[in-house]
Computed example of a mutant assay.
Amino acid sequence: MSSETPERQDGQGAGYRRSAGSARGQARRRELLERVTDDLAVNGLVDFSLRRAARAAGATHKVLLYHFDSAEDLLGQAVFTLRERRIGNAMAAMAEGAERRTLAERVRVAWHTLRDEEPGLQRVLDQAIGLAMYDPARYGDLGHGASAQYLPLLVSYCPPHWTGPRKLEVAQMILATLRGFTVHRAIGGEPEGAEAGFAALVRALDREEA
């Protein structure tokens, strides 16, 4: 029996079931997820389906359902991966001279990174929030997951001497405000309006840190 037989049997058999937790199985899962994630970054979420994901991954939909619990699970993992890319971009932009920056300056760098990021990435992540709002019973985790990923980074921007609750309160304010600006831009709002709002946020953060 060849090593490819388990996938052709669509996940049937104890040997294949055991293989998913192996190093090779985990590598296969990462490969599939990366391919689906790249497809989302280009084509968005609007017509996402397991069939489309299988085409992008170069596999059958049954193979995907072996490695992921459901289409929703696969979508959630792909969106999580895209957010990780966004966070990585922000952290890379923050790396130079980060220790000398105020909270407002750090948020300014993060905003410029969001504002100037590749359109496909921004579109997909905005669509994910839209899905969470449209059908919270099915896609609510796409929204909750965003906060869980972004808040630790924003908390880390806050002055170290602040209390934990204060850091979290300010981080939540920053996240809600920046999210509003990105949605404003996504629906064709005037860029000047978002920039004026961001300037007001910076002033508020300067007062908070003073």
Rank of each mutant, 00 (worst) to 15 (best):
2 S>F: 07
2 S>G: 14
3 S>A: 14
5 T>V: 15
10 D>E: 13
11 G>T: 02
12 Q>L: 13
12 Q>H: 12
12 Q>A: 12
13 G>Y: 05
14 A>C: 04
14 A>V: 11
16 Y>T: 12
21 G>I: 00
21 G>K: 01
25 G>Y: 06
27 A>K: 13
27 A>M: 11
28 R>V: 05
28 R>P: 00
30 R>S: 15
32 L>T: 04
33 L>T: 04
34 E>S: 13
35 R>G: 01
35 R>M: 02
36 V>P: 02
38 D>Q: 12
38 D>F: 04
40 L>Q: 02
42 V>Y: 00
42 V>I: 07
43 N>H: 11
43 N>Q: 03
47 D>H: 11
47 D>Y: 03
48 F>W: 00
50 L>Y: 04
50 L>A: 07
54 A>M: 02
54 A>L: 03
56 A>H: 00
61 H>Q: 15
62 K>E: 15
62 K>V: 11
66 Y>D: 15
69 D>G: 14
69 D>E: 15
70 S>Y: 10
73 D>M: 12
76 G>Q: 14
78 A>Y: 08
78 A>F: 08
79 V>Q: 09
80 F>Q: 12
82 L>M: 08
85 R>W: 02
86 R>Y: 02
87 I>L: 03
87 I>S: 00
90 A>T: 05
92 A>Q: 14
98 A>Q: 09
100 R>A: 11
100 R>M: 05
104 A>T: 01
109 V>P: 01
111 W>K: 06
111 W>N: 10
114 L>I: 09
115 R>V: 02
115 R>N: 06
115 R>L: 12
116 D>Y: 04
118 E>Q: 14
119 P>I: 01
122 Q>Y: 12
129 I>G: 08
134 Y>K: 14
136 P>V: 04
136 P>A: 08
138 R>W: 11
141 D>Y: 14
143 G>P: 05
144 H>D: 13
146 A>S: 13
149 Q>L: 11
152 P>L: 08
153 L>F: 03
156 S>L: 06
159 P>G: 06
161 H>T: 12
162 W>V: 03
163 T>H: 07
166 R>T: 06
166 R>S: 04
167 K>T: 02
167 K>H: 03
169 E>A: 13
170 V>I: 08
171 A>E: 00
174 I>H: 09
176 A>F: 05
178 L>N: 10
179 R>Y: 11
187 I>V: 15
188 G>L: 00
190 E>F: 06
193 G>L: 15
195 E>G: 03
197 G>P: 08
197 G>D: 10
197 G>E: 07
199 A>I: 00
200 A>V: 05
204 A>G: 08
208 E>S: 14
